[in-house]
């Protein structure tokens, strides 16, 4: 049963991700991205990570993608402008990705499996009881320092965005 769900979610993620870049209409691209976010959330649920699934939908589908759609609609991008001649760079980027996936598919599969299993075995019982509680406790005990650093980085980024967007703050006051 879970294999079936995984197959469905993975397949849909792959198809919709391709559609995001392949579709001509930017609004349809944004919508297939929305469908993809949903299926990623579905994958999280099959892994018993309900909190992550909800956050995935709230943050990405609910906020970020709406803003994307906003921009796409206001700009009303002409279809020619959207396709820059980037395929050479894309080709160069593709080579290492291809090699990586070949490596993963051929030899490294066994090693990856054991690795993930040893990761799962530790906090298994905590995850079963309350996923959100487990995440909170881990974040504020084991990973407190990285968590605080990440929040600081986000704060700096936020201040930077406000400063860039509000160039006229000083002009109004004087």
């Amino acid at each position: 049963m879970s294999q079936l769900f995984f197959g469905y979610f993975a397949g849909m993620i792959a198809i919709t991700s391709i559609l995001v870049v392949a579709l001509r209409n930017p609004v349809y691209s944004a919508l297939s991205l929305l469908v993809m976010f949903f299926h990623v959330a579905g994958l999280f649920i099959t892994l018993h990570a309900e909190f992550l699934a909800a956050v995935q939908i709230i943050v990405y589908a609910g906020a970020i993608l709406v803003l994307y759609l906003f921009v796409v609609m206001i700009l009303n991008v002409a279809q020619d402008d959207r396709y820059h001649s980037q395929w050479r760079i894309a080709g160069v980027v593709c080579i290492p990705l291809l090699i990586e996936s070949m490596l993963l598919l051929s030899g490294g599969a066994g090693a990856v499996n054991t690795g993930s299993r040893s990761l799962q075995s530790g906090p298994q019982d905590a995850i079963d009881t309350d996923n959100t509680l487990a995440i909170g406790k881990t974040l504020f005990s084991t990973y407190l320092f990285p968590f605080e650093v990440a929040s600081l980085v986000l704060l700096v980024a936020m201040i930077g965005a406000i400063v860039l967007a509000k160039r006229d703050i000083g002009e109004h006051n004087t």
């Binding site: 909190f51 699934a53 939908i57 589908a61 609910g62 906020a63 309350d130 996923n131």
Partner: peptide, 16 residues
């Protein structure tokens, strides 16, 4: 066990 987050998640999709 994520009841209220579930509601918030779908409420945010109403904007679409």
């Amino acid at each position: 066990n994520i009841g209220i987050l579930y509601i918030l998640a779908f409420a945010s999709l109403g904007a679409y």
